[in-house]
Nucleic acid binder design. Structure first.
Lengths: 191, 191
DNA sequence: CGAAAATTTGACATGACTCAACTGGAGTGG
DNA sequence: CCACTCCAGTTGAGTCATGTCAAATTTTCG
């Protein structure tokens, strides 16, 4: 478990053993059941979570009750609602577990402590957000310029691991399609 | 000019006068003509830019030659291609000036120097990216769930200043619409 | 003024949505 | 272990938003 976190952090910054131990002391481990909420709309997000095991989704429920999936998470990904935890305002998102999950949490307060003790961790989180931001920009461009079929093909090429673990109607939601449309796309696809 | 930058930085972190002076010494001022490129596809982005005056766009040209606008920039916004400058790989974007611009640049190297001398600036740039990321997530959700008409109304409500300065076909591109469709939407709109 | 660019308008095509019905598998309880 | 329900996935028919192609009109700017 800690190895996963160390490897993930070590990918972007180099820390001493002491630094790692400081970091580890500030995280807490938590298990979730399938379908359990990590964050519910209206709650203020209090931590960032690192997925040790399992699979999550983060989504918004719109005025018409439709769910729109913002992103999925699997092992070694980070989940959180930056907007809510930074602004301390209620989140507009839900996050829940598609599979049973094991996570490491760090609260905002402990993150500040961590930055003070291990300044490189501020850099680490900056890099995480940068990467998330870059990915998010790419997704915007894909949504602007590609058809449903192209977006689906891109998705399965990019996230083959996710595609196998997640029901199609949720992939449809992520891609901005109805389940019916995705089903038809998948139908043609096998030509 | 420096006041604008100071105010922008001061919005997120508090610096001493010395810190500001250190920061200022690492930026360089540059003027651009209308239509001039700030960054061209294929070039490696070498700096982040702060807009003192003017208006920019950042866009991708797809396989079919179509342009898709990722974002606009006006006074007191930051422009750059994080992916390219961090990875040192050629950018896939173009950035150019819709109006004549005045900018303050900071190169990646000087940014590192700045972080070392004024650690709060690392925090400042992290916050900038966080905010950009949050905005980008919201845009994804809008693109997933809203019609062209709704996206347009949201755009003019959110960026009234931009809407007046930018040709409609570029707004269409930003919204993921053809200029024709946007024109029709605007037609109905005046009911 | 004149050329180029931007915007609008019309006719038509199409991708994706909606509503609805049907299939098949997973889980549940008697 | 079967009957029942629930949910995901598929399929069909009709509709609508938006795209495409083409042309006319207006605006911008050298």
């Amino acid at each position: 478990m800690w190895e996963l976190l160390r490897r993930n952090i070590g990918r972007h910054v180099s820390l001493t053993n002491d630094d790692f131990e400081t970091a580890e002391s500030l995280f807490t481990f938590k298990k979730y059941r399938k379908k359990q909420f990590i964050l519910q709309e209206g709650d203020v997000s209090r931590y960032e979570s690192f997925i040790i095991k399992g699979c999550t989704r983060t989504y918004e429920t719109d005025a018409g009750g439709q769910e729109h999936i913002l992103h999925f998470g699997i092992e070694e990904w980070w989940v959180g609602d930056l907007y809510s935890s930074l602004s301390e305002k209620p989140s507009v998102y839900h996050s829940d577990c598609i599979e049973a999950c094991e996570m490491l949490h760090i609260t905002k307060e402990k993150q500040e402590i961590l930055y003070a003790k291990v300044p490189a961790m501020e850099r680490f989180f900056r890099i995480l957000i940068q990467n998330a931001f870059i990915a998010s920009q790419n997704r915007i461009l894909t949504n602007l310029s590609k058809s449903g079929k192209e977006r689906y093909n891109e998705f399965i090429a990019k996230y083959p691991l996710i595609e196998q673990r997640i029901p199609n109607h949720q992939i449809a939601s992520y891609l901005g399609l109805t389940p019916q449309s995705l089903s038809r796309i998948r139908g043609q696809h096998s030509k």
